[in-house]
Design a protein around this nucleic acid. Structure first.
Lengths: 270, 270
DNA sequence: TTTCTTGTTTCGCTGGCCGAAACGACGTTT
DNA sequence: AAACGTCGTTTCGGCCAGCGAAACAAGAAA
């Protein structure tokens, strides 16, 4: 154990600039808890008050953070809008998916989502909200696990073997009694997803939520995203399920086509 | 001049964490020049290559920056989407303005914009693009001057006296021959804007662009934003001007009303 | 009033950050 | 195919920027 460092004096985080890393952690924390004060944020990020104050001061000068009029609490600044909007505009995947998400949401009347994988997490990079007053809360840019939920499992099913292994061998947190927390069961589910080309997930992350998702491929056939919908299980009937599944599959294939994929959904060899 | 520091050894930027500041500068620079390499970004930000590399490394770990597949260039990461979307959601001004921008853009068929002032700049915090193929390029989160353009001048006209003085006494950069670069002329224009309650600006920032804007007030009557449209001057005729002006004024007042303003557009005493 | 709790400021130490320069891997040119 | 240029990456040691602790100020709550 101690000898781990002996081989080479190479720190896995050697190039990390810690003050910048802590500033970004603070910024992302603030995004999730707006209208917080210095002390509150210091506790949430486990930093000292003085550091938190200095970081907020620095971020404020760049417009990424803003003091509320009462001068006591902080919120994200308007300059953060630039980062989000430019990131969106610069992604071909997102811009071509947006009209498709609109169609999918219009025909199913449920939330339509586009997810990608980032290391061992999924991240929602685009969405269109359901018109229903009762709808699932979802937010762009949030991270989540790969082993639970429809879209996440699609991503995992088509991820490199090494990624799948790391997830399967890790702790498979159970969110509900429907969650898959058994490694073998997960492997079987992933195989099923590759065979069927889509997934229907019910009550895995929350007992009252369903989701349906299918893979999105780029020009070379590699799965780069998952397109799907989610909504309250109350709206999931036998007939609506068929409609939903058809809409998700059609739109996922349409999106793949727009990204240059010319093939047909072939059964992935496992 | 030299004695400015003598009074108190207080550095105006004393709380600034320089590495964080440079990291944010880098991030905002990357937002404006995607697909850049380390060397390119180092030059653009006037930092060393090593620092730029370390900052990118740090930002990448947080998902704010992403390496392109070819492993040579960098782009904004998907985590930046979170910052933008949360900033948008958390702003009551933006969320209530969005449907109004849609209406304004639909009726005028031009770009509809919402601007606020941030120190001596204006910043576009929401927009809805014109349906026309020929339209002005505008981006959310970009900064610009206060003395040129319709919306910016509305903001300046209603800014605190101290802000107006700082702008007027500064260098009034001329972008076209229509730009107002004379201090007295600017003061007169601002007075006119306060009297009329709106502004029509033609060819001030670009010879081929017009813009029409009006103030937006909060519950206390303070002007907190400017709502307006812009488009190519080719589409500005006598009849369309009247329609545009009416639409801008009506929607600006409607937005003010939704923000709790109960008064009527009164002439500001100058 | 007193007593918390907040945000802000100071201060001295030190270890993390920084620039310079070398390195290695491409791609391009001759 | 060899030489060159350019890019991203890595190393290194000095030194000062950034850090935590603690005092301070300013309100809010009791």
């Amino acid at each position: 154990m101690i000898s781990a460092k002996e081989e080479k004096n190479v720190d896995p985080a050697s190039y990390l600039v810690s003050s910048v890393d802590r500033a970004m952690h603070l910024l992302l924390t603030l995004a999730e808890m707006p209208d917080s004060g210095v002390t509150e944020l210091a506790e949430a990020t486990k930093n000292t008050k003085s550091l938190t104050f200095r970081l907020l001061f620095t971020l404020e000068r760049r417009g990424l953070v803003r003091k509320d009029p009462d001068r006591r609490t902080y919120t994200l600044g308007y300059r953060a809008l630039l980062l989000g909007d430019q990131s969106r505009r610069q992604s071909r995947l997102i811009t071509t998916a947006e009209p498709i998400l609109a169609d999918l949401s219009d025909t199913t009347r449920e939330n339509a989502l586009l997810l990608v994988r980032e290391d061992l997490n999924h991240i929602c990079i685009a969405m269109r909200a359901s018109p229903h007053p009762l709808r699932i809360f979802a937010a762009i840019g949030r991270l989540g696990p790969l082993h639970a939920g429809g879209g996440p499992k699609v991503l995992l099913a088509h991820a490199p073997a090494e990624v799948q292994e790391r997830v399967i061998s890790g702790a498979l947190e159970a969110f509900t009694e429907m969650s898959i927390s058994d490694a073998d069961a997960l492997v079987a589910t992933l195989k099923d997803i590759r065979a069927k080309g889509h997934v229907v997930s019910i009550g895995e992350l929350d007992p009252d939520i369903f989701s349906i998702a299918a893979p999105v491929r780029d020009h070379s056939g590699v799965v780069i995203a998952a397109l799907g919908i989610n909504g309250p299980t109350a709206r999931l009937t036998e007939t609506s399920l068929d409609q939903f599944r058809a809409a998700v599959l059609a739109n996922a294939d349409r999106l793949s086509g727009m990204l240059g994929w010319q093939g047909k959904t072939d059964v992935h060899p496992d």
